[in-house]
């Protein structure tokens, strides 16, 4: 059900049709994006500087350390280590950005600044807020992914026309993690719980085949790694930039879509419960 402020002023998004968040309209959700854009217009340096971290990692681990590694075997083909690591860094930076935006930023607005309390006394609904904040995280992530992909192209690290799908794939990764991050944030009582977020992110960043192929692990550990969402994100982007695309891509996409939809559903409901009591 879509409640609109004025007849015909709100349109149902595809997202809203799949996950019916009560009273969400795309037009109102876009106002959340407008608000965030207004905030960051002044501090665009922060947004720009966010690009450099994955870029530095690419130069250090990908190129500096990559020279010591040489090539790695992937699906029976030998590829340069730099070309192996680069897509993984893109995927994990999409995860990092989405998680940061949907946890620290949202927690601050939810618990301290009371930003949402003010917004909800207008026609905006909790669903609008949730959808708007996630959309903002996706836009920001898209900017990073685009610049990183450009760097990869310039360094000759893209080996397949499939790479045109990297950007939508990165948005999907951002969506999956932002939705889950936001849902998790609504359950957090205090700042100390972010230690827990770190505890989820860091092991994934280090172990989800970011820096070396799955085959390096003993088979028992492989089963664990395959369950993590970042594994699917990394493998999805890597198969697109290397051109080693096969049926498993569908599994990776499915995993991320389901994760995002569940997260969004939980986040919308929890926000409603927290803010409208």
């Amino acid at each position: 059900m879509t409640t609109t402020l004025r007849p015909g002023s709100g349109s149902e998004t595809l997202l809203a049709r799949i996950v019916p968040l009560p009273g969400t309209s795309a037009r109102r959700a876009s106002l959340m994006v407008e608000r965030n854009a207004l905030v960051y217009r002044r501090s665009w340096v922060i947004i720009v500087s966010g690009f450099f971290e994955p870029f530095f990692y690419l130069l250090s681990i990908g190129i500096g350390l990559g020279a010591l590694v040489g090539t790695v075997s992937l699906d029976g083909r030998m590829i340069e280590y730099t070309a192996f690591v680069a897509p993984a860094l893109l995927a994990s930076s999409a995860m990092n950005g989405a998680v940061y935006d949907s946890t620290f930023n949202i927690f601050f607005k939810l618990k301290y600044a009371k930003t949402y309390d003010a917004i909800l006394s207008t026609p905006m609904s909790p669903g609008d807020v949730a959808a708007g904040e996630i959309t903002w995280a996706l836009i920001r992530g898209l900017i990073y992914s685009t610049t990183f992909l450009a760097v990869m192209l310039a360094l000759g690290l893209v080996g397949s026309p499939w790479a045109v799908l990297v950007l939508p794939a990165a948005v999907l990764i951002g969506f999956g993690f932002a939705a889950v991050g936001m849902a998790a944030t609504t359950y957090m009582p205090g700042w100390q719980d972010f230690e827990f977020v770190q505890l989820c992110i860091l092991p994934m960043f280090l172990f989800a085949t970011t820096f070396y192929p799955l085959a390096t692990y003993p088979s028992a550990l492989q089963a664990v790694v395959v369950c993590t969402p970042l594994y699917h994100a990394v493998e999805l982007i890597r198969s697109l930039t290397t051109g080693l695309v096969d049926g498993t891509v569908v599994i990776h996409i499915g995993y991320l879509v389901v994760m995002g939809l569940i997260g969004l559903r939980v986040a919308g409901r929890r926000l409603e419960k927290l803010l409208l009591t």
Binding site: E34, R35, L38, T115, D117, A118, T122, P123
Partner: peptide
């Protein structure tokens, strides 16, 4: 059609005085 002044200020501290009003008006469409 309501105007709300809550007990504790919920002004948007990330925005300027003027922007607080601008964006709030936008929330009303």
């Amino acid at each position: 059609r309501l105007g709300v002044v809550p007990q504790q200020d919920t002004l948007d501290t990330e925005l300027s005085v003027r922007e607080n009003l601008l964006i709030y008006g936008r929330y009303f469409g």
